[in-house]
Amino acid sequence: MMKGLAVNSAIPPPPPVLAGFEQINRYWDKSQGVHAAKILPGELYVSVHGEMVVTVLGSCVAACIRDRVKGIGGMNHFMLPQDSQHSHGWGGDALVTRYGNWAMEALINEILKRGGKRGYLEVKLFGGGQVLENMTDIGGRNIEFVRTYLKDEGLEIVAEDLGGRAPRKVLYFPDTGACRVRRLNRVTSDTLYNRERAYAKKVNTTPAEGSIELF
């Protein structure tokens, strides 16, 4: 009987989304045959259900982190503000790295909250390319930041594909830790450039700060 082989009925229902990630774009990825979540600059996603996490990187960096024992993990996608307006005067570098610090800590906390253990964390890094024209080496600064951060936190990098000039598409499978990286053609990456420029503008003009509430 051919009945059971109908394409649509072969797609399993999507796993439940974890609280806090409802706004992330999720879809069925036909080529990999898995449910996937696609993150944009400034976003992060964590899964406990073996979903694939996907992003496209120019000069931004994505950290793929998981608990290698439990298979709980995810990905972030960020860049540091490059403008000196954030680094002027008192505070210096600490101000500029707040974005990166937040992106890294938020991802790690989401994994720990779901039962991951700090001692089992496995880190892979991607991106940080020098892909935007007429800009300083933002990619290089993002790479330098994330390496320093992980060193300070005592977390080892088990794999990386950083720098260079080509944009990348990264597929990450937090349950197994597998990654697939595809170099993208520079001329076909207009969407990526525009998105990254818009994000760069946002991090350079919006102060990085959360809310404060006194009880």
């Binding site: 609280a19 806090g20 008192w90 505070g91 600490a94 101000l95 707040r98 974005y99 610090n101 937040w102 800590e105 938020a106 906390n109 102060p207 990085a208 700060e209 959360g210 809310s211 404060i212 509430e213 006194l214 009880f215």
Partner: peptide, 28 residues
């Protein structure tokens, strides 16, 4: 990094004075 109401309510009930969501602005 927690900005959700549930955690905040828990913190308040535990006796916290206030809740500051990261990233923090040093001056603030």
């Amino acid at each position: 990094t927690e900005s959700g109401m549930d955690k905040k309510t828990e913190g308040r009930a535990a006796g916290a004075t206030g809740w500051i969501v990261k990233p923090f602005n040093p001056d603030q």
